[in-house]
């Protein structure tokens, strides 16, 4: 019998196994690949500050508790806003849909929460929402966000994947030095709505605290 023959011929056994398992992947992923890569006309890439915030989101792994995917149920659209559309994610590398909602969905949190709320909340969630089990993220108020890496990320996706960033985003230290003030400007705008003295001091010293980048990112989730 064929299968028994395979059991005596490890090489062909392996080839057969591989063929059988590889096959489904092609059918499951390939047909939708181009379609799913298209942004909506209204989707814009994130700013460098927002990208830095996204990296804080990944570093502190908020995805452990928060999804970013609103399913098409009335109960979800009532709670979080419109159901999510594929094109909205076209610039998200990685995607951050999550698989567990220990906390609420955040895909449109920028619509119904604001900077000062996040500031209070991230410092100590139970102060704002009694009974909250979310950890406090005080360290984000003192850690410095890595905006240079965020910029490098923008450069990379622009050059490799044609993400529509402006001409001022290009490789090299000089271009970055020229761009840096813009990021600080954005950070200042966010910090203006915040109360934390330490944050204001860091911004004044030309540093962007992680919390500022993170809030810029959360506000961009709309």
């Amino acid at each position: 019998m064929f299968f028994h023959w395979l059991e005596k011929n490890p090489f062909f056994f392996a080839v057969m196994t591989f063929a059988v398992i590889a096959f489904a992947g092609l059918i499951e992923i390939v047909p939708n690949f181009t379609e799913a890569a298209r942004p909506l006309t209204t989707t814009t890439p994130r700013t460098v500050l927002e990208l830095a915030g996204k990296n804080v989101y990944i570093k502190d792994n908020c995805i452990a508790c928060h999804s970013q995917l609103i399913r098409p149920f009335k109960s979800e659209t009532d709670r979080y806003g419109n159901y999510s559309l594929s094109g909205e994610y076209a610039f998200d590398r990685p995607f951050l849909w999550g698989s567990k909602r220990t906390g609420p969905d955040l895909h449109r949190v920028g619509n119904y929460r604001t900077t000062d709320w996040h500031e209070n909340h991230m410092k100590n969630p139970p102060d704002i929402v009694p009974g909250s089990i979310m950890p406090s993220y005080k360290h984000q108020f003192t850690n410095v966000a890595d905006i240079e890496t965020a910029y490098a990320e923008a450069v990379t996706v622009k050059n490799v994947f044609n993400v529509p960033y402006g001409d001022d985003i290009k490789a090299g230290r000089k271009a970055w030095e020229a761009y840096r003030p813009k990021v600080l400007e954005d950070a200042k705008k966010v910090a203006a709505d915040m109360k934390d003295e330490g944050v204001k001091k860091m911004i004044a010293n030309g540093k962007v605290p992680e919390i500022v980048a993170l809030i810029a990112y959360l506000n961009s989730l709309k």
């Binding site: 499951e28 992923i29 939708n32 690949f33 799913a36 890569a37 990296n55 594929s86 094109g87 909205e88 994610y89 076209a90 610039f91 998200d92 590398r93 990685p94 995607f95 849909w97 890595d146 240079e148 890496t149 965020a150 910029y151 490098a152 990320e153 450069v155 990379t156 996706v157 050059n159 490799v160 994947f161 490789a171 090299g172 230290r173 970055w176």
Partner: peptide, 23 residues
Amino acid sequence: LSDGLGSINNSVSMYAGTNDALV
């Protein structure tokens, strides 16, 4: 890809959004 900017650890996924989710 940025001529040596930022952290050596950082990388971006080859796929974006829904494609990334599928993979």
